[in-house]
Amino acid sequence: MGSEAVAAGLVTRHELRTRFVPVYRNVYVAMGRTLTAADRAGAAWLWSRRQAIVAGTSAAAWHGSLWIDDRLPAELIQPSQHKTKGIVLHSEQLDDDEVVCLRGLRVTSPARTAYDLGRRAGLTLAVVRLDALMRATSVTADDVRVLAERHGGARGIVQLRRSLALADAGAESPQETRTRLLLTRAGLPPEHTQIDVSDRDGHHVARVDMGWKTWKVGVEYDGTQHWSDPRQRARDIDRQAELEALGWHIVRVSAGILRDRPATIAARVWHALRAAGAPIPAPNLNF
């Protein structure tokens, strides 16, 4: 906080003006620093004079969730404060077990954070955020369901229950979550995520994003590095050959196919499962 730093003699007013930039009123950051979502959460908490409770996406970032857009406004529960640009204020009643102290800040607990994020409009985004929060913390769907029962009449509770049924802490990226949801909508929900595959001597060969161990069919989302980095591409080719030698069929998914041809992904997975002997009906390809 600028006033505190000046009063403590840590910076002069001139240095504050020339070497730092304001994030919010009386809250400064060193010039040239790019703020993360967690940084914005801390800055907003300082703006509240250390009185607010960090909530929503800011709480998720503070708990260590990845893939929170750094450009999103900070979120606080502080109904008595005046609004300010870049901060969203919520008026919520929280029970004692719905708030934790984490690295000096009061933050909604992982379960309460998941409860809030899972109720927001947009089922896919809600599941993406729940996957990330579950991966970053030890919170489980059952922990969140306790709060859903406690606040049964809350807005968005129906979507929350759907989100929890679809969430999986095994997702290592938003695109993996979207791929899993696509398959689930098609009637092909993967049995497992992050499947460890070993060879006949017990040596680890690969970890497959999602799939069916019973039928040795896996699905993997390949990010940009899998296509643009020659060394990564060479490793992928060797890895694919090793998996195929062990009887696995891997369906690979790219950003373009996921965005433009989701039905192609579902059809390829279904054909692979049928070829492996899985007794499953034709998928729903109406995307």
Rank of each mutant, 00 (worst) to 15 (best):
W215L: 05
A266S: 10
A38K: 14
S163R: 00
S173N: 12
T264G: 00
Q159A: 07
G118R: 02
G86C: 10
A74N: 07
D201E: 13
T140G: 00
A37D: 06
A59W: 02
A55T: 13
F287D: 08
W47A: 14
D222E: 15
L10A: 13
M1S: 12
E172P: 03
V27F: 00
D116G: 13
R252K: 14
A59E: 02
I87A: 12
D199M: 13
V217R: 03
E191L: 11
R106W: 07
S254E: 06
V205L: 09
V253R: 07
P279M: 10
I68V: 15
K85M: 03
R233A: 15
L243Y: 04
S3G: 06
T184S: 14
S138H: 06
A30V: 13
D143L: 11
M134T: 03
P110I: 09
A148D: 13
E242I: 00
A171Y: 05
D199Q: 07
T36C: 12
E172D: 15
V269H: 04
P190K: 06
Q51E: 15
W47D: 06
H271E: 13
C101A: 14
P283I: 07
A44M: 04
R119H: 06
T179H: 05
S65E: 01
V99A: 07
I87E: 10
R200V: 00
